[in-house]
């Protein structure tokens, strides 16, 4: 029983690729066979986040055009032996792959992997249509920001049109202080508009940036709050019922220190 999950958002920069990398590592940490397929042809980033850029020999386009079997293009992760990446080309563009080719590839991958995560490009054009074609399930990533929620809404509509009804939501980069002071949309506002099942609330965490630059997803870091949120999402994907974490808001002393020292 393998699952093909597409990770999409509509808007760019909300954390699709970060989420794909973290969930992939998280699922592999749980002992699952996972392959990450990057479909953001021309703007590939997934390999960077995993620290695998220098190991790429062949790419998605070579596979779909039949130049090499997919096994040759798979890049195994340095640490997690059950995690593979199928990178895409940096020189071609989105028109190089079509939906039928990706469906066929995923059917082949299903035989060997438990989870196939597809990293979708931003936008609603051909690249998006190709990426969602093969998916059984979709995870929509958004941020507590009006434009990101709008785009997520549009994407959910588009997914419905493509007959993808199993849609889950992840809200990324929540800043608890701003939510508390009413400057940021809270979960109720977002659920009100999107009204789909939410499987993750990820706090804004500076460690995400450091981990991205290092090529080590933050899910492996014990201290990272975003990492904890991703670990919870992985458990939810595997069917566990995990309560949402309470966000730490600024305590009295932090506030005082910020006032006094102006940090």
């Amino acid at each position: 029983m393998s699952e093909v999950i597409v990770i999409t958002s509509g808007k760019g920069g909300v954390g699709k690729t970060t989420t794909t990398a973290n969930l992939g590592v998280g699922l592999a940490m749980q002992g699952k066979n996972v392959v990450l397929v990057d479909t953001d042809t021309g703007l590939r980033n997934l390999d960077l986040l995993l620290g695998l850029e220098n190991r790429i020999m062949y790419d998605l386009i070579d596979v779909t055009e039949g130049r090499v079997p997919y096994k040759k293009a798979l890049v195994r992760h340095k640490k997690f032996e059950t995690l593979y990446l199928l990178p895409t080309s940096q020189v071609k563009d989105k028109s190089a792959v079509n939906p039928e080719q990706l469906v066929k590839l995923c059917d082949d991958l299903r035989k060997e992997f438990d989870f196939i995560l597809i990293d979708c490009p931003a936008g609603i054009e051909q690249g998006f249509k190709t990426a969602v074609a093969a998916a059984d399930e979709a995870i929509v990533v958004t941020m507590p920001e009006i434009s990101a929620v709008r785009d997520a809404d549009k994407i959910i509509g588009e997914l419905g049109r493509a007959d993808k009804d199993n849609i889950k939501l992840i809200v990324n980069r929540i800043r608890p202080q701003m939510v508390e002071s009413g400057d940021m949309l809270d979960m109720d506002d977002i659920n009100d508009i999107l009204s789909i099942d939410c499987i993750g609330q990820i706090p804004d965490d500076t460690m995400v940036v450091t981990s991205t630059n290092k090529g080590e997803p933050c899910i492996t870091m014990e201290k990272s709050s975003a990492g904890q949120a991703y670990r919870n999402i992985v458990r939810r994907i595997l069917g566990e019922d995990v309560p949402f974490m309470e966000f730490q808001t600024e305590g009295f002393f932090e506030k005082l220190r910020r006032r006094v020292f102006g940090k």
Partner: peptide
Amino acid sequence: NKTLRGGQEIRTESSVLIVGNVNPG
């Protein structure tokens, strides 16, 4: 019988009943 999401449109000569939300856009 569903929520109308951003970018979706309904055009009809008759009256309309929406069982769901009508989202911005």
